[in-house]
Design a protein around this nucleic acid. Structure first.
Length: 274
DNA sequence: CTCATTTGACCCCT
DNA sequence: AGGGGTCAAATGAG
């Protein structure tokens, strides 16, 4: 998402707010003498509020975009595609949710099933389905690097996670897994933006925390531990480090002196997205 | 050997 | 006809 637009600024700031609240929660948790649980709940409440704002802003932005691109089309043409019991999504079907983020990690386990070069886009579009799709989970997502802000990803979610209903399934296990460092990276925060293989490999388990970290990630390392895609030809050598200092980044760098990992550890992106 | 990823081909829609 | 979305065989890593 292009920085500078009011929506983008709001999203950035709200994300920062989340991070601040998360850090606060960490501090409260580690406080000695221990603070009341009520205080920690307050920090959690702040995070939830930020989350709701982000969700609302994102939804509004996505809706505006849709209407701009497809005026008058309030409902998708039911047509043959709807009648067809195919897995194929109705062309241009509306995303259940569209997220602009600096990371694709969302706490779920995804399996890549396709990649496509898109006209007018410098970056390929990646297609994922829930790794529990075999168990009937219909959730899929489409990931593409933002044109305006290559450090950011536009993630469109389709379908609901039906696998999350029961304990023991892959989705649930992924989300319940001990929280590894998870970055809620809005992209403009220069914490190291990695090639698609890296960010996907690190989803949902681990995200690189620094430019050095990501830069040192072996491009060819397609460990299958990662449930999301490994290196693709177009990305395997692509290790980008976001250098452009956004106002938000400057704000972060200039005003916050917290331990990044602390914040990161306290944030569970998957939970935030619920 | 198993399983996730890659990637070209195919299908369907506009 | 062209483009986007999905399939599935091939490939490669553990």
């Amino acid at each position: 998402m292009a920085l500078g637009t009011p929506t983008a600024v709001v999203l950035e700031l709200m994300t920062m707010g989340q991070q601040s609240a998360a850090h606060l929660g960490e501090l409260l948790r580690a406080a000695s003498p221990p603070v009341q649980a009520e205080h920690q709940a307050l920090a959690a409440e702040i995070i939830r509020c930020c989350d709701r704002v982000i969700a609302a802003v994102t939804a509004v932005a996505a809706d505006k975009k849709r209407k701009a691109m497809d005026p008058g089309a309030t409902s998708r043409r039911p047509g043959p595609a709807a009648a067809m019991p195919s897995k194929r999504r109705v062309r241009g079907a509306e995303a259940h949710r569209e997220v602009h983020a600096g990371t694709t990690a969302d706490g779920f386990a995804w399996r890549k099933y396709g990649q496509k070069d898109i006209n007018g886009s410098n970056h390929p579009r990646l297609y994922y389905r829930c790794s529990s799709s075999g168990e009937g989970c219909a959730a899929t997502r489409r990931v593409q690097r933002s044109q305006e802000d290559p450090a950011a990803f536009i993630i469109a979610y389709y379908g609901e996670h039906t696998c999350g209903a029961g304990l023991g399934d892959a989705c649930q296990q992924q989300r319940a897994a001990p929280a590894p460092p998870t970055v809620v990276d809005t992209g403009s925060i220069a914490r190291g933006i990695v090639g698609a293989d890296d960010w996907n490999r690190n989803s949902p388990l681990l995200l690189p925390l620094s430019a050095e970290h990501s830069a040192h990630a072996a491009p060819g390392d397609t460990s299958r531990r990662w449930l999301s895609p490994s290196s693709s030809s177009s990305y395997s050598s692509e290790v980008e480090v976001e250098l452009g200092a956004s106002p938000v980044e400057e704000f972060l760098d200039g005003n916050f002196d917290w331990e990044w990992e602390t914040v990161v550890n306290s944030l569970r992106f998957g939970d935030l997205l619920q």
